[in-house]
């Protein structure tokens, strides 16, 4: 049996690599926007989120208000509330309040995706391993990008942009392959998301994701309610 902490670390390796490449871009963006490298690193260390940080740097560069900053972060990151709620249903008894307070810092799209796809209940040490390696990739990439980013060939940094999405595909495609209901929900969510992108571009990225995902999941729940006894069996 692998120790949960080690297991978390190893499950986080693709996230770490993907984060490094994405936050590398964030580091470059932050410095280009007039921030010091140390500010960019501090933002990555305390926020651990891609879209919210990019928007935040934009607000700082434009000398926006703190209210605007708070409202923007709220909308873009609101999806984490939904993820936190979903994860709260999968926690083992070892997850006491203090562990919840610490681990909630590390709820990101990718960490959520990996954690929620685990068959067994989540223990704190597993989450800490997963968060630690992912966050080090995120902060390390930011530092590298902010300090040395402009030196790499553009063709390489451009191609690195696809890595995180490749990871998402590695999670959803096997589910879609083995279960038609999952496939339909996945296709619905992608279709709604495309509608927002091409027909309703005034809706912000954060809201578009929340609305698309909720609509697809609610339609899935109405058309194909899951067998409750079945999922409880899976969790054991």
């Amino acid at each position: 049996m692998q120790k949960p902490f080690i297991k978390g670390l190893s499950h986080g390796i693709p996230i770490c690599l993907g984060y490094f490449s994405v936050s590398f871009g964030f580091g470059i963006l932050a410095v280009k926007s007039g921030l010091q490298a140390i500010d960019a690193i501090l933002i990555s260390l305390t926020n651990l989120t891609s879209a919210g940080q990019a928007a935040g740097v934009g607000i700082i560069a434009a000398a926006g208000t703190l209210i605007e900053m708070a409202a923007t972060q709220f909308v873009i990151n609101l999806r984490y509330s939904l993820m936190g709620l979903t994860l709260s249903q999968k926690l083992s008894d070892k997850f006491t309040t203090i562990h919840r307070l610490i681990a909630s810092f590390g709820i990101t799209d990718e960490i959520f995706a990996v954690a929620v796809s685990q068959k067994e209940k989540l223990v704190p040490t597993y989450m800490y391993g997963l968060i630690l390696i992912s966050a080090s990739g995120w902060v390390g990439g930011t530092a590298a990008g902010a300090i040395a980013g402009l030196a790499l060939p553009a063709s390489l940094t451009a191609a690195m942009g696809i890595m995180l999405y490749g990871m998402f595909i590695a999670i959803i495609i096997p589910a879609a392959r083995s279960c038609k209901k999952d496939l339909i929900v996945i296709c619905l969510a992608a279709a709604f998301s495309a509608v927002f992108k091409y027909l309703l571009p005034m809706v912000s990225f954060g809201f578009a994701i929340i609305i698309s995902a909720l609509l697809a999941a609610v339609i899935g729940a109405i058309l194909f309610p899951i067998n409750v006894a079945e999922t409880e069996g899976e969790e054991e």
Binding site: D109, I169, S193
Partner: peptide, 13 residues
């Protein structure tokens, strides 16, 4: 359904 829906909406397009 939420996890698959969120990831799919974020990935495509």
């Amino acid at each position: 359904y939420i996890p698959y829906a969120v990831l799919s909406a974020m990935t495509f397009p």
